[in-house]
Design a binder for these strands. Structure first.
Lengths: 200, 200, 200, 200
DNA sequence: GATGAATGAGCTTTCATTCAT
DNA sequence: CATGAATGAAAGCTCATTCAT
């Protein structure tokens, strides 16, 4: 209560999440145990359960943190988009840059994105952000900023391509310089794809 | 006698794979245990190990089966493609149709595809097929069938979009009629995307 | 200030005992944890240890309270007994009436009375009261108020029958009216039993 | 299947029950853990769970064994009773003799008889035997073998007194010779008690 | 080759208890 | 005194794997 405790509590929570990310990356989520996570901190095993009920909760917390960070940026950017090109670019650019800078959490994010429903892709935060995207797409269509396109397939495509490219980008070892190329390719690809389906 | 034995052996193997797919779908790969799989057959637990070393081997076997089926078709089709449109269409059409018909195995494939460094996303068969695709793309570019494009990003994109659309398509409950729409959307999207990146 | 503190201290102690009785009844002594007890109060877990060393101490405290109440009455009554009938009646009547009124504590007492070498069935208070009974029986025999009978078996019998009848009585749901019947049955039964063994 | 296995299975089950009884007596049921039980056998910890789900199941199995043994005898005897004296004697005699000979299991039986509902007094077998007793009492009353008495209180009393006396008897260290005295006391006590309540 | 009980490492989780605040 | 997070021993239990039959 007096600050020192509160501080310690927060730091412990972060300690566990950090350790969780490390272990998830190292061993994969399946193979990770609560023991693995707690072993890397210097906390007692029981302490884990003061903060999380399971390793999955740690994962969700880690993903939510990332989702909030990147989601906030993307939402703000979308508001400013004047046309399709900007709309897509303003999603792709921060997304890929985030992926580059936070590749570790992003690797978990990606390598587990589609996992089993049990704890899976649909972090509350992620669901929320995807819903925001969908709403902004609909609004964009109504306002004439975006062409008239199947909203579901569009959202899926932008998500899939962005993730796919991010994954490829991250796994290219020599990926220092070509972030701009990746952004350009990705934006171009999606914009053109979208445009072409206008007449379908 | 020997025939019957051989038959029985094969039938046990298939029994296990079939049970594996069921359980993987039901509980997710993580939560599935060898016990779960063997319980659904009427075999003894020890029998499992006469056929597979682990549940992961069952998964790989199941995926390989599917990969071989769909891969064969796609490879044959690619040879016949005269231009970009056909090249893409000939990939997308059988892929989405397969996804529609075998949605169960496909759901495992998709819902766990990326999870899985731990037991290798890349089934030998899948690696092989992706390499075949890559080779055919390179050959396509050389022969002028395909435009000059970053091979890696192209492969990634085609794979990502196809998977994303397949996933969306499968999860739309009322998906009897619009398979053709999905194919058209998907093909258009990729073709246009690719064309646009020619000048990048 | 000091008065209020003192008051608070007492109230916490009683709070814990009360909560203990509730939980013991609800979950049984075995399954009850200190956490369970403290959770029902709004005290912190550490506070528990300012008053008791273990849940067993809470139990003993609760039992002792009851034992003291009922024991006091029985002791007083015994002194006034002029003959066997009165001696028995003066034990049974207050005992069964107490059991009726305080059935909750009595249910704990009974439903766990024999379990418990581990944390001692014999509350100091209970041992004391049973010793008092034994002494009064011996005195009663010496003074001719009671017939000459094996003291141990007599004490056991009176205790067993009283408890058994109390248990049966309590578990009969419609037990508003027949408390007098129970007392009569019980007294009759013991008195006659005792008389019959005089000549053994 | 071939006998050797079947044999081993049976022997393991008995091993666990035997060990369970030992530990229950030694540490009390509360304090006994599955690990304690299995440690005394030379079996692996997992093996326990091939036979029982919990220590409580072991307890029930042990109690059921005893209940079946003693219950069988008592049921047979009751049929032969010609009058109240015999009816009671035929219950008490085998019961107390059994208690003397099998005092270990009987100590568990008694010291936990009234325990918490969770696994408690009411072993399926015990419930059954008590119901049989009740039925025979009712039949006895109808046939004029027993006097007209409240069945519930009678059953409770006979049970309470028998148990109480057994407990006292067992706890008397020098109890080699006086089993007959105990039987006589107990029978006399109950018979007289019952008779006295005829006119209530 | 099929069986399924035995194995035991090791994971999850609880909980009494302590102690800095 | 009250608080409640931290502790870590230890319990319950699962499960992949082995191996005698």
């Amino acid at each position: 209560m007096t600050g020192k405790r509160e501080e310690n509590k927060k730091s412990n929570r972060e300690l566990i999440i950090k350790s969780g990310i490390d272990v998830f990356l190292e061993k994969g989520i399946n193979q990770t145990t609560v023991r693995d996570i707690i072993r890397k901190t210097n906390l007692a095993s029981g302490t884990f359960y003061n903060y999380f009920k399971s390793k999955e909760e740690v994962l969700v917390a880690a993903l939510d943190d990332a989702t909030v960070q990147i989601g906030q940026v993307m939402r703000d950017q979308r508001k400013k988009a004047k046309n399709l090109e900007e709309f897509v670019l303003f999603q792709i650019e921060p997304f890929l840059k985030f992926a580059k800078e936070h590749s570790s959490i992003f690797l978990i994010l990606n390598s587990n994105l589609n996992m089993v429903e049990s704890f899976s892709i649909e972090t509350p935060m992620m669901t929320l952000e995807l819903r925001y995207l969908r709403e902004d797409v609909i609004a964009g269509i109504e306002q004439g900023v975006l062409p008239n396109i199947d909203v579901d397939y569009f959202c899926t495509s932008i998500q899939s391509v962005a993730e796919g490219v991010a994954r490829t980008f991250i796994s290219k070892k020599d990926s220092k310089a070509d972030i701009d190329l990746a952004i350009k390719f990705c934006t171009n690809f999606i914009v053109s794809g979208v445009k072409s389906t206008q007449n379908v």
